[in-house]
Nucleic acid binder design. Structure first.
Length: 901
RNA sequence: GCCGGAGUGGCGGAACUGGUAUACGCGCGCGACUCAAAAUCGCGUGGCCCUAGGUCAUGUGGGUUCGAGUCCCACCUCCGGCACCA
């Protein structure tokens, strides 16, 4: 049976036809033809080494860095360039301000997609990676980005891998890398373990596959040792506050106390961690995590069955299941009692899965009166609730705020802060507790069961010891293998490369086995910014001179999705290198900016195929039960159907499905292959030129805000550039463009003022990354500069310089046609004449009772009296102000006059 | 649930430390040029009232102020992050 109409769901895509259709009808034959010269300039910049940077102590340096991309098979989409263009504009601007700018680009090229492609096709990941890199490089170059391509780095290059392994060796020597049997996030679908940071809601960050917890032997990095510094040093960097906060929350430092509850009838006791030691007198029971080692020892005979059953069930539950159930408290009494150290009261010891083994001591003192979770648990199991802090009503709910201590012996009458200090002192005196700091941050799980990653420079000797491959034998390169698939038995693919794995210790000649796990993708990106400063150094990571001159990164731009992964890892490695004396800055990235996403628009409806005959429904007929779409009428479960933007039928501004009258829902979200909403920048560059593309992305709105991609505004910026082109071009009768010979002289007063204002505005906006408003000022200039006469050369030249960071190809071209032989990339940035920025005459708004009734022009230096007189002379002001004396007059010089009657 | 961020014309957005809301661009309308069209250029363009002018408009409702998009309180919606971390 033929389908009712073509509609697609899920994956499988081709390029978006909608974009091109619209361009073609609007694209004019126009003298401004960027295609004729943009490529020429791109080639010239590379050939002449225009953007090569070398250490030059006579000039201040500026290091502008983009987060380097993973070169995927799809190539760039229009979202990528947003950050790259912004940094490029800034780099070009800084060069013109006399800075020696370092602006490199490279590839974060290890990673799962290339490996999965290899599993499917058998093609070596290095081959696809090289091809993808070539494509990315071309796409970036087509945008005219001013990278120093001689510094390009590739994390998969043996010359780079060597130093990644070298850093690992230093971590190992310092005891910061170790192997441990830990419960890990195993993803069966991906065939590898994942770091905590790579798992969301019990699913893998990449691909959204289920993840299970399993104990496995893995490499760990002791990032927790740096927890305090990772929090404290955030003070020193100029980052968006929300990113700093995410990092602080991720490290999760909390200050409190540990206290020991002695066990009744057993040796030893239970250590608990609490941030509210002031509520110790309200602790009416103790809870152990199911995995806690005491559970087996202290459970009474009567309770043993129940406890074992519970512990086993809890162990089987995935984190996802535990999360969904959070709120409903479950648990079992162990039959044992512990003694509250502050009042000697016996309290029951329970086991419950709301206590996590991985945090603190894996055991808590429960204070149901002042902790919501404990309260819910106590209510469920009928445990006593005692109020020990005033301020709430514990018969209704837990009160977790601060207040005055009551029913608390020596703490009675003390406010929370003082009570905390007092009780900790007391615990320490009695030897039953102490001041303690805890972190949410766990050590970094650093090994992966994959092929396409850096091998560990580790040898396992027969006696079970581990040793490093000597530095002079690095890098340990990946062996060629022919099967990249995960084995399904937790073994990494490298374990099957027997000839590679079985080797000898180069120092003793004894048999040894190579480590078969590989490093995660985060390894290379944790230090690549340091390699850029001296990328070809074969004797060291980088030379001390280069480090001293170039570090740290002055401006780092990249997606907020890396707030806690890459940025935390890189800071950690940097601090280790700092401790080794290799880098001189405490932090790697001084200023951080996060460009907002460019989103795609996609269209969906819902389908019901349960009758065999497919029916389609608009979003209006659908409601959601959790994440499942259900038809409002029949209650039947539906599935989502996505329509390509190019196939949408527009009817009175409403999107309809291609051949059936079903209204579609427009969904704005991250561009992704599966939605068919990816737009390739090549199409835009081809139709309008790189300068238009650059300008448009910067003009769409503030850098840090997410915006849906739309082609509608591109003709506007293109027209602006065409207008600029015409300002510098005479149309020859033969149809050949000739450079325009601009007039001598300074131009009119209005022209000089307009230039000064434009210089001032553009400069300030560049400094604060408000590129959209800088562009609007440049547009105003181009619109108005010839309103009262032809533009003289003295104004034409500085304007080209102002525009050049944004539209470098056009400006270089016009600069050259004006007779210059050198690139304008290093011309001095124009300076505004301060005298011209102040107007002689200003427009003042005249308000009566705060409402604007007239606008008058007065000399800029007019005093209040004069302005008031001028204002009262206006009929409409008279009318509203009446005859009486104004009760009050507010005068804001240069802005407004408000008359209150 | 908690923590951030954001809600301004038909659309993307602008508005310095409380001081003329809607810059700039898109779209739309009108005009010039043209045999004509395209392109280009110029003018207009928040709603309502017939105009001079008035009036209402920055998510909603209050408040502070001579004056609020901007500050305060309460709420709604969207986006992002975290989510039993004791």
């Amino acid at each position: 049976m033929p389908p009712v109409y073509r509609i697609r769901s899920g994956s499988g895509r081709r390029s978006n036809p909608l974009t091109l259709r619209r361009f073609r009808t609007k694209m004019p034959p126009m003298p401004y033809a960027p295609r004729e010269f943009e490529r020429r300039w791109q080639e010239r910049w590379v050939e002449q080494g225009t953007f090569r940077s070398e250490i030059d102590p006579s000039r201040p340096k500026f290091y502008v860095l983009d987060m380097f991309p993973y070169p995927s098979g799809e190539g760039l989409h229009v979202g990528h360039p947003k950050g790259y263009v912004a940094t490029d504009v800034f780099a070009r601007y800084k060069r013109m301000r006399g800075f020696n700018v370092l602006h490199p680009m490279g590839w974060d090229a290890f990673g799962l997609p290339a490996e999965q492609h290899a599993v499917k096709t058998g093609q070596h990941p290095a081959v696809t990676t090289a091809r993808n890199i070539g494509r990315y490089r071309e796409q970036l170059q087509a945008l005219g980005l001013s990278y120093d391509w001689t510094r390009e780095v590739d994390t998969t290059d043996p010359g780079f891998v060597r130093w990644t392994q070298w850093i690992f060796a230093r971590l190992f020597e310092r005891g910061l890398a170790y192997e441990a049997e830990v419960p890990v996030n195993w993803c069966p679908k991906l065939g590898t373990v994942l770091a905590n940071e790579e798992v969301r809601d019990g699913k893998s960050d990449i691909g959204g596959h289920p993840v299970v917890r399993l104990p496995m032997k893995q490499w760990m990095l002791r990032i927790t040792e740096y927890a305090d510094r990772l929090v404290d040093d955030l003070e020193q960097v100029d980052w968006p506050e929300h990113i700093k906060k995410m990092q602080r929350d991720w490290v999760g430092r909390s200050e409190g106390a540990s206290a020991r509850f002695a066990l009744v009838g057993h040796e030893g006791g239970v250590d608990v961690f609490t941030t509210r030691p002031d509520t110790l007198f309200g602790a009416t029971y103790v809870v152990l995590a199911p995995e806690h080692e005491l559970v087996g020892r202290i459970t009474s005979e009567e309770q043993r069955n129940a406890v074992e059953t519970y512990v086993e069930a809890a162990g089987r539950k995935s984190d996802r299941a535990r999360m969904i159930e959070s709120g409903e408290k479950t648990g079992v009494f162990t039959g044992a009692y512990a003694t509250n150290p502050v009042n000697g009261e016996p309290v029951p010891v329970w086991v419950a899965d709301y206590v996590l083994i991985s945090y603190g001591t894996g055991a808590i003192m429960a204070v149901p009166g002042h902790d919501e979770r404990d309260y819910a648990f106590a209510k469920t199991f009928g445990l006593p609730i005692v109020e020990v802090v005033t301020g709430g009503d514990v018969s209704v709910q837990a009160f977790s705020g601060e207040g005055i201590a009551v029913h608390s012996g020596l703490l009675d009458g003390l406010p929370t802060d003082e009570a905390k200090t007092r009780i900790i002192d007391w615990l320490e005196e009695q030897g039953v507790g102490e001041r303690t700091i805890n972190y949410k941050l766990r050590d970094w799980l650093f090994s992966r069961q994959r092929y396409w990653g850096e091998p560990f420079p580790i040898l396992h000797l027969e006696d079970g010891t581990k040793k490093l491959v000597p530095d002079d034998q690095l890098p340990v390169e990946l062996p060629m293998i022919d099967d990249y698939a995960p084995s399904g038995d937790f073994e990494p693919p490298l374990a099957r490369a027997r000839e590679w794995v079985e080797t000898t210790d180069p120092e003793t000649g004894q048999p040894a086995r190579r480590e078969a796990n590989t490093m995660p993708q985060w390894a290379g990106s944790s230090w690549y910014y340091l390699r850029f400063i001296d990328p070809h150094n074969e004797d060291a990571l980088f030379s001390p001179d280069a480090e001293k001159y170039w570090m740290n990164v002055d401006l780092y731009v990249g997606g907020a999705e890396h707030a806690v992964l890459h940025l935390l890892y890189a800071r950690f490695w940097h601090k280790v290198l700092y401790d080794l004396g290799l880098v001189s800055t405490v932090e790697p990235f001084q200023k951080l900016l996060n460009p907002g996403m460019i989103q795609g628009k996609s269209y969906r409806c819902f389908s019901d195929e349960s009758d065999g005959d497919t029916k389609y429904y608009s979003p209006g007929d659908v409601r959601f039960e959790g994440e499942v779409p259900v038809h409002v009428g029949s209650g039947r479960q539906l599935s989502e159907e996505w329509v390509e933007p190019g196939d949408v039928r527009w009817n009175g501004g409403r999107p309809l499905a291609p051949s059936v009258d079903v209204e579609l829902e427009e969904v704005i979200e991250k561009m992704s292959k599966s939605r068919g909403n990816v737009v390739n920048p090549d199409d835009v560059v081809h139709e309008y030129g790189a300068d238009s593309m650059r300008l448009y992305e910067m003009f769409m709105g503030p850098l840090d805000r997410a915006v849906p991609w739309s082609v509608d505004g591109i003709p506007g910026v293109h027209r602006f550039l065409a207008r600029v082109y015409r300002l510098y071009t005479d149309e020859d009768p033969d149809g050949v463009d000739a450079p325009r010979k601009h007039a001598e002289g300074d131009g009119t007063d209005g022209q000089r003022r307009l230039l000064a204002k434009t210089i001032d505005k553009v400069t300030r906006d560049f400094e604060s990354f408000d590129l959209n408003t800088a562009i609007s000022q440049l547009m105003v200039f181009a619109r108005d500069i010839e309103k009262d006469g032809p533009m003289p050369a003295s104004i034409a030249q500085p304007f080209l310089l102002l525009l050049s960071p944004l539209a470098p190809h056009l400006c270089e071209e016009l600069w050259q046609r004006q007779g210059h032989t050198e690139s304008l990339a290093y011309e001095t940035w124009p300076e505004a004449d301060a005298d011209l920025l102040v107007d002689d005459e200003v427009e003042i708004a005249v308000q009566v009772q705060g409402k604007v009734r007239a606008k008058i022009r007065v000399p800029a230096d007019a005093d209040e009296e004069a302005v008031l007189a001028a204002a009262m002379a206006v009929d409409n002001v008279q009318k509203h102000a009446g005859d009486g004396k104004p009760r009050r007059v507010i005068y804001v010089p240069g802005r407004l006059l408000n008359i209150v009657v």
